[in-house]
């Protein structure tokens, strides 16, 4: 007995390997989870310190546009109002998405519906190239080309939301385009056939069936693009003007949450209010990215139900 018994009662080599592999992946997952939680915790502790230790009110932080954390205001309160940055961040993000979406959809349609072979051959490398260009290069081009162009057309300094949006438009275009292509390609071919067989033209098929069926995917693509635009720091910082002022027009210098962070973080001392205030900006960014993620989940789920 017993060899047979022994063999049956002891885990085989395959079982042991299985367990080993499982353990390794669990350890890796655990590590990443701890990392994520600690990043969130770290940002939250420092970001919330502005409110709990320095007693800045949340309302003031969100709705006041006085940003000068190093000094006390007339009322003896520290001047930590992020309104300008919040507005500017949302403005560049929305504007960039509004600019990029029609182009992205047009390019994606061309590549999937109108000229799948030629389109993919020509445009795929272009899109990949756009993704690969470092953001500092985008910022530099923006600084050298777009800012002077805006200056000569609209006057002023040329720095501001418009310049930021144009730079971001080019940066998020490939993101939105490639995700839109994915969602168009997921539209089953029999929808196209059914529509054409009913005597619909190609164009009717595209906008009445394909775009409608792909809508959740396209919305997800846009939200992804917006998340990227919202979080982009360097390129925006180079063209936005970096003045913590509420934007009065599309061409007035301002600052976004990210550009304020990158331009100021070297000038503050850890543990002081000015430093904590920057952490609070980071906290707002983090919260927004969580919101964007949730939005993507919600939109994506709705799409699944439809399919």
């Amino acid at each position: 007995m017993n060899k047979m018994q022994q063999r049956l009662l002891h885990p085989s080599k395959a079982t042991r390997q299985d367990r080993f592999g499982k353990t390794i992946s669990l350890i890796c997952i655990g590590f990443i989870m701890i990392l994520t939680v600690s990043i969130i915790g770290f940002i939250a502790i420092h970001g919330l310190a502005t409110f709990f230790e320095n007693h800045v009110s949340v309302m003031q932080f969100i709705f006041s546009s006085n940003w000068n954390p190093g000094q006390l205001g007339k009322n003896g309160q520290p001047q930590v109002g992020a309104f300008a940055m919040i507005v500017a961040s949302f403005a560049v993000t929305l504007l960039a998405a509004i600019l990029a979406t029609p182009f992205a959809i047009a390019v994606a349609l061309y590549m999937t519906e109108l000229a799948p072979k030629r389109g993919a051959k020509m445009l795929q490398p272009v899109i990949e190239l756009l993704v690969g260009i470092p953001s500092v290069v985008y910022g530099f081009i923006g600084l050298v080309v777009i800012v002077p162009a805006i200056r000569s057309v609209f006057g002023g300094t040329g720095f501001g939301i418009l310049a930021g949006s144009i730079v971001l438009f080019v940066m998020i275009l490939p993101t939105i385009t490639s995700l839109t292509i994915d969602s168009l390609q997921q539209v089953p071919d029999h929808y196209r056939k059914a529509s054409l067989a009913l005597g619909a033209t190609k164009w009717q098929t595209i906008y009445k069936v394909i775009l409608r069926a792909a809508l959740p995917g396209i919305l997800t693509a846009i939200v992804f693009g917006m998340a990227r635009a919202f979080g982009e720091a360097l390129a925006v910082q180079m063209v936005i003007g970096n003045a913590a002022l509420t934007p009065t027009s599309l061409t007035s210098p301002t600052a976004t949450l990210t550009s304020q962070l990158t331009s100021q973080m070297g000038d503050t001392i850890m543990g002081t209010l000015p430093n904590n205030a920057l952490w609070s900006l980071a906290l707002v960014l983090l919260i927004m990215s969580v919101i964007f993620n949730l939005l993507i989940k919600v939109v994506g789920k709705r799409g699944e139900m439809k399919k």
Binding site: A197, L198, A200
Partner: peptide, 27 residues
């Protein structure tokens, strides 16, 4: 429009029944 086709796999659009049947008319 004159020569219609029904396919092997049922292939309604992912819309409401009403919109499906109305599709050809709207087109």
């Amino acid at each position: 429009k004159k020569v219609g086709m029904v396919f092997q796999q049922p292939n309604p659009f992912p819309f409401s029944v009403y919109d499906n049947v109305a599709y050809g008319l709207r087109v």
